[in-house]
Amino acid sequence: MATTVGVVVFPGTNCEMDAVTAVEGLGGSGRLLWHGDDDLSGVDAVVVPGGFAHGDYLRPGAIARFSPMMGAVARFAADGGPVVGICNGFQVLTEAGLLPGALQKNRGLKFLCQPATLRVETTASALTGRASVGDELSVPINHFEGNYTCDDETLARLRDEDRIVLRYVDNPNGSMDDIAAVCNEGRNVVGLMPHPERACDELLGSADGAILMASLLAAA
C-alpha cells in the first residue's frame, strides 16, 4: 500500500494540489483533508500546505488553528505522526503551539517570491531523514511573513537540541539565525517557509525539494 499523506485544506489554502502532486510523483498517495472534518484514519503523514488560510485575518494561522482538523493533527503529532507545515502551514503550526516561535513580516518591505538556497542542518527530522547534513538545496520561497523569530531562551534550546532543520545560505527575510525550518522536541513536526513541493521536478526549475518530500514519505 502506498503511503498516504493527508493534506489539510482551509478556506484560502492554495498549495494543496502542489503537495498532492509532489507526493504522488514520489509514489505516495495524497488525500485532501477538509479543515472542518477531524478524521485522520488511514493517514500516515500530514502536510499543512501554503496559502492564506481564513484570509490570514487577524494573523496568519490565528484562526486556522481552531479548526477541528487541527485538533486531530495535534493528536496525530502527539502520537508521533509526521507533520510538515509549509509556508502558511508553518505559520499555522506555530500559532497552534506545535512549533515554537513566530513568523513576523520580512525584514525588507517586500513580499518575496524567488529561489532560496537552503542548507540541511540535521537529518534527524521528519523532513530530512533522506538528506545529508551540509546538502544545499534550491527551493522557492513565496511569502511576506517569513521572518522567523523567537525569544533568546527558545533559540538557545533550538540550537542545543539540534532542532534547526534548515538554514538559508543567503538570508532573504531577516530570519533569526538564518532559520528556514525548525522541528519540535519529538522531531516529527517540522515547519518551513520554503516550498519543497514546488521543487520536485526539473521542469519547475529545481527538483531539490524531492529529497525533503521523500524524507516525509519515509518517516510515515
Binding site: Q104, K105, N106, R107, L109
Partner: peptide
C-alpha cells in the same frame, strides 16, 4: 501593537 524589535513594514513605509 507589535513588540519592540518586531519588523513593522507598514509603520516604516
Amino acid at each position: 501593537r507589535l513588540r519592540g524589535g518586531i519588523s513593522d513594514p507598514a509603520g516604516a513605509t
